[in-house]
Design a protein around this nucleic acid. Sequence first.
DNA 1: CTCTAAATGCGAATGATTTGCGTTTCATAT
DNA 2: ATATGAAACGCAAATCATTCGCATTTAGAG
Lengths: 140, 140
Amino acid sequence: MTGERILAQANLKCTEKRLAMLDYLARSHHPVTAEEVAQHIGAAAHVSTVYRFLGTLVEKEMLLREIHQDGIAYYQLPQSRHCHMLTCRNCRRSVNLPHCPLTGLQQQLERQTGYHITGHLLEFTGVCPTCAKKEKTEKI
Amino acid sequence: MTGERILAQANLKCTEKRLAMLDYLARSHHPVTAEEVAQHIGAAAHVSTVYRFLGTLVEKEMLLREIHQDGIAYYQLPQSRHCHMLTCRNCRRSVNLPHCPLTGLQQQLERQTGYHITGHLLEFTGVCPTCAKKEKTEKI
DNA sequence: CTCTAAATGCGAATGATTTGCGTTTCATAT
DNA sequence: ATATGAAACGCAAATCATTCGCATTTAGAG
């Protein structure tokens, strides 16, 4: 969906900065931080502007926000296929799971609990092969 | 496991405050915040002391820390069966999943990525039946 | 009992995020 | 095209959980 369309649907004014932010979000195929958004858009925007805009979209349920285990909020446009991450606790490098393994479970859970489930967070933590090798070397 | 035993195994000195903290953790059958620990122990301890002690235990992998979607760290002693939560975004009331559905997936993921996976976080967000009813009423 | 390393308290520092407010810009009606 | 009110923006100060530095106290080995 194009940035103009998203803004119209959200009933928000169309500005250069907002289009740039949406463009960056659409381009990123993984969750990104507000800081990253602020840095990677051509039209420089103040961090507070970025936070405010992203927050507004989240309120309108047109953007997903998840707080990862590093304590930082990551944002992503809701795509047909969202993904989850496996992050190295040492170097923070992460790989994505190819697809979300929870869709079926979520439906089952809704039936069992009566909750209307609006989202979920799944994050794996571990040690990547490179760091595992390093740690082994250092211990000798 | 008793508090004395945990401290001995962690190679940490045995103090009144630490025993109180461990006691509280053992008594809580759900993840708790550092703030809660500080408030609910008889022997008053400074927050920084609580944070330091909990942090030390986490480092030694004798305590689990997970950052929830409210951005706050929750701690729990590792039990034979850990669980995950489904939290109402409105009233914060939560129900537990009966068991962790990720064990198999995690092993498969280790094979595929070469990462050594040390933990995971799974958290569902939704609206509980009570709040759903309320929201519907308010909209009329 | 003595002595040292570890534990504690306190306050200041940190870092992501939010907020208040004055200024600028969008977009709608004239 | 222009005026105008509302929304967006920039900036700096506030917030809040968490961490850190340092001086003081205490556990527990010898």
